[in-house]
């Protein structure tokens, strides 16, 4: 059994309205020193295979469904 975490991040240069809005709200709540906030999507999964195969499968999942290569980068991390 392998456990992987897939992180879907916005590419550099793609505006992140969710992150920006969250940051504004945090500031209005009085949190000081917040330099940046980015929204990230994480999928956690367990796969019945070796860690090596799970990493490959995770990358294939990103290409076929989980990430849009125009705006997003993905990272598959074996846990």
């Amino acid at each position: 059994m392998a456990r992987i975490e897939i992180r879907i991040e916005l590419k550099k240069g793609v505006a992140d309205p969710e992150g920006k809005n969250t940051m504004k709200t945090l500031e209005s709540l009085g949190f000081e020193g917040v330099k940046s906030v980015s929204s990230v999507k994480v999928f956690d999964m367990e796969l019945d295979m070796s860690e090596e195969d799970a990493k490959k499968a995770g990358e294939e999942m990103c290409r076929k469904l989980l990430a849009n290569p125009v705006i997003q980068n993905y990272k598959v991390i074996v846990r």
Binding site: V14, P17, E18, K20, N21, R63, N68, P69, V70, I71
Partner: peptide
Amino acid sequence: NEPTAALYTNDSA
């Protein structure tokens, strides 16, 4: 085979 554009979150979020 892959998307070549995206319809992404409105500026207003």
